[in-house]
Structures are given as structure tokens and as C-alpha cells.
Computed example of a mutant assay.
Amino acid sequence: MLLKDDPSSDEEVSVIPIVGMGGIGKTTLAQLAFNEDKVKGHFDLREWVYVSDDFDVSRITKTILQSVDPGTRDVNDLNLIQVNLKENFSGKKFLLVLDDVWNENCHEWDTLCMPMRAGAPGSKLIVTTCNEGVVAVTGTCPAYPLRELTYNNCLSLFTQQGLRTINLDAHPHLKEVGEEIVRRCKGLPLAAKALVGMLRNQLNRDAWENILTSKIWDLPENNVGIFMCRLT
């Protein structure tokens, strides 16, 4: 999707949304794509901005401009910032990642994208989001949805990160409790990695059972945001 040179029109910028629940790996996937050698060679400019829930158009635009042109003078006038950014993007094929976007305001999104329309055909934006509403507002390409890992893949991630092995067979005293911990991760790779980080080099069953009986699991169904905050 990134390497396809579909021409951008004057009316819109080519936007690829990566969507999925918190902890599913959206940022990790975007990083892998962003740092891929073929992708690096395909674009004249590559920039990354962490957005979160503070969708301040002036701040985001200024951050992009300072990343593209570190020598730019510090200004706070949105119009001037956008004029400068448009000049930097003009005729260049760029890749911009906006990580963790929550804002569904069409007007603010259109304002943010105005300078980007000066980019060369084939320029791309990647937007990572948990919010399907953001996909509806920003996406010009089909969204790339991320789903939970299968149980076996989640178990493999858990054991490789924590025990440097492909499964729990070499640690039969941990097998039952470890498999139950993985089941409770519900296929979220960040949850598996966070938990195994707490258990790394801990080979006694009591430590693993303490995690299994911990209050971190006492949460409403699907309340992934609070779950991830408790883990980190």
C-alpha cells in the first residue's frame, strides 16, 4: 500500500488507517513499515508525529515542520507554519505517520492536511487509531485492521520473550499456570509482553501464580485501556 504510486488529487491526501484495540500492535506495525529499507528509498521525506487525544492543529503542524526543517524559526501563527510546511512538502514524495489519533473533527483534519496537498503523487499518511470514527474521517484507502493473536501465537510470544523457548514443555511446573495467563491476555501482544516482563527470570511457580491471581484481572469485560495502564 505504501509503495503503490496512486496519484494524489488536489482535494485529498492518500491516508492509510491502521485500526485496532489498544495493545494490539498498531504502532509496532507502523514502525516496521516506516523503517523498511524499500520504504526508506521510496520517499523523499519521512516524518513521525505522536498525536494522542490532544489534536491541536497548530502544535501538530509545527511539530511536522520542525521535523522536516529543523532550522525553521519558532513561530506560532498557524497560517505561517502551514505556508512554510507547504513549501517544504512541495513536489516531494513524503511519508507521514500520525500515531494514536482520536479526533473525529472533519474541519480540523482538513485544516491539518492542507499543506500536504503540495506533496508529490504517491505521498502517504499512516494514521494509527483505536477509533473507527477516525477511520471514517481520515481514510482515503481501505483501513488495515489488526486482530488479536491466536492463542498459539500469543503463547509463543510469551514463552520466547520470557523463557527463550518456543513453549512451556521444558518447565512443566509452570505449564498450567503459564497457559492460563496467556489465555487471559486475550491475544493482545502488549499484554503478553508486559506480563512476561514481570516474570522474566522468575522460574518459581509462586511468582507466576501471584500474577494469575493478581487484581489486574479484576476489570470489566473489554476494558483494555485500564488493563494496559495497570500493566505499565
Rank of each mutant, 00 (worst) to 15 (best):
M1F: 14
L2C: 05
L2E: 04
L2N: 04
L3V: 10
K4C: 14
D5M: 12
S8N: 15
V13P: 00
P17R: 04
G20C: 07
G20W: 01
G22C: 10
G22S: 07
G25R: 01
T28E: 08
T28S: 11
L32H: 12
E36D: 15
E36F: 11
E36M: 11
G41H: 04
G41C: 00
H42I: 00
R46E: 02
E47Q: 13
V49D: 01
V49T: 10
Y50I: 12
V51Q: 03
V57P: 03
R59W: 04
R59Q: 07
I60A: 02
I60E: 04
T61R: 08
T61W: 10
K62Y: 05
L65W: 02
L65Q: 10
Q66N: 15
Q66R: 14
V68K: 09
P70N: 03
T72A: 13
V75E: 15
V75F: 04
N76V: 13
D77Q: 10
N84V: 10
N84I: 08
E87Y: 04
N88T: 12
G91C: 05
K92G: 08
L96N: 06
L96F: 01
W102M: 08
W102P: 01
N105E: 03
H107Q: 14
D110I: 11
T111Y: 06
L112N: 07
C113D: 02
R117I: 11
G119T: 10
G122W: 01
K124T: 03
V127I: 15
C130I: 12
N131H: 11
N131S: 05
G133L: 06
G133K: 08
V134H: 04
V135N: 03
V135D: 03
A136T: 15
T138Y: 11
T138H: 10
G139Q: 07
T140P: 07
T140E: 08
P142W: 00
A143Q: 08
Y144Q: 08
E148Q: 13
N153R: 09
C154E: 04
C154S: 04
L155A: 07
L155C: 03
L155V: 08
F158V: 09
T159W: 03
Q160R: 13
L163Y: 13
I166A: 13
N167V: 06
N167C: 01
L168R: 02
A170G: 10
H171G: 01
P172V: 02
K175I: 04
E176D: 12
E176Y: 12
V177P: 04
I181P: 07
V182P: 10
R183Q: 15
R184V: 05
R184S: 03
G187D: 09
P189S: 02
A191N: 00
A192E: 05
G197Q: 05
G197W: 00
M198P: 10
L199N: 02
L199I: 06
N201S: 15
Q202S: 14
Q202F: 01
L203N: 14
L203Q: 01
R205A: 15
W208E: 09
E209W: 08
E209F: 04
N210A: 12
I211E: 11
I211C: 11
L212I: 00
I216T: 01
W217L: 06
W217I: 07
P220W: 07
V224K: 09
V224D: 05
G225V: 14
I226F: 13
I226D: 13
I226S: 15
F227L: 15
R230L: 15
L231W: 03
T232W: 13
